[in-house]
Design a binder for these strands. Structure first.
Lengths: 207, 207
DNA sequence: AGAATATATTAACAGTTGTTCATATATAAT
DNA sequence: ATTATATATGAACAACTGTTAATATATTCT
């Protein structure tokens, strides 16, 4: 039996629930997204939810589990190839392009909203944020900057500090975009700032 | 009649309510901080709250109004004195010291938590964040960078971009500290990063 | 002193919450 | 076709929500 999750029609009830929950959690937060709201968004009664999930928290965990396995973390090669060593700025540009893509992707935006809404109230999300979002990025980037420093391509400094300085404006930008989009405000000004950041940063570290 | 708000004893009931509410809102968020929890934290019944505030939202607005009139925004002279022109790095250091102070201040931390918890769900807070937190800082800083550029003290670039690059790591750092402190984790590593940011940034822009 | 005002309490309200149960209706397996 | 399984429904539950009303107790004013 075809259990597709793609187009529209042949979605299993369980998938419909997670989709509707993702939307409602990202708009209302955990507490305000009641099981009745979720159920009616799916088109069933609230008691029917319990045939697919143990309870409300189970639904949330199912949605939240998607937050940290972004496409972002997988295809990032943690080591520099010699080709990338020859053009380090373009490597940073590629990183930022990916980051920008995630920022403007609809699904990733919903997940990011959930993360930000519940970040201060949910320990699991906090740990995921620090480990998967922050530390993983810092580790990858600081490794790259370390190599670049050793080869005399960028100025000598603390690689971890440099990674922090590189990632922080991207995160800040992503949050900014997310906030504007909630109120349907234009983000065209911010869109180009991703690339400008790379330019500025490269000017800051190139030797 | 002495209506002090300082030490401990002679707090008016209204002040007790706002204090308890600030604590509960910052720990639980708006929805989870019920009027009964607030009342019992003060030591009265929930109905007595309505002698001091119109409703729950009124309490929240009273607390939230403190978020954006931080000591931070007032004594910041928006123009550079000639003395500051002679030592521009120390001006940035002063800015960051202030930012760091606010980050580790207990009251400001509670208010920042409330802001971050409700940011994505409360339009007023979103607007306050963008206007009072972001735009005001960008305006002050970009003005300074503009002057420094004109005097050939820092490298030529977009002053607004430069302000963004300067403020983003500070915000990211503040969020990071806030998250760690929720779980009573050590922030000693991060504490020194504020100063390191100034050093790194100054190296990035000095001509 | 007594009158007036401010602030507290108890009780109740209507609505919402997450969850469970018995039961009905589809779908699949034999 | 009959049985078994998965999934839906409607009703109910206890707990909690913000808020109001009637009433009691302090505090302040004259």
């Amino acid at each position: 039996m075809p259990e597709n999750s793609d187009s529209n029609q042949t979605l299993s009830t369980k998938e419909k629930i997670t989709n509707a929950s993702m939307k409602l959690f990202s708009e209302l937060g955990y507490k305000n997204a009641s099981v009745r709201k979720i159920a009616s968004a799916v088109g069933i009664r609230e008691s029917a939810l319990y045939n697919h999930f143990k309870n409300k928290e189970d639904i949330f965990l199912c949605v939240a589990s998607e937050i940290f396995n972004s496409p972002f973390n997988n295809d990032d090669s943690p080591t520099l190839t010699s080709a990338q060593l020859n053009n380090p700025k373009s490597y940073l540009q590629k990183f930022v392009t990916e980051y920008k893509l995630v920022t403007f992707d609809k699904t990733q935006e919903s997940l990011f909203r959930i993360l930000m809404i519940e970040l201060l109230q949910n320990k699991v999300l906090r740990e995921g944020f620090l480990n998967e979002f922050h530390n993983k990025n810092i580790k990858v980037l600081s490794g790259i900057f370390f190599t670049l420093m050793q080869n005399g391509i960028v100025r000598s400094s603390d690689p971890i500090l440099m990674a922090h300085e590189f990632i922080a404006p991207l995160f800040y930008l992503r949050l900014h975009v997310t906030l504007l989009r909630i109120d349907n405000l234009s983000t065209s000004n911010l869109s180009s700032q991703f690339e400008k950041h790379v330019d500025f940063f490269w000017e800051s570290i190139k030797v």
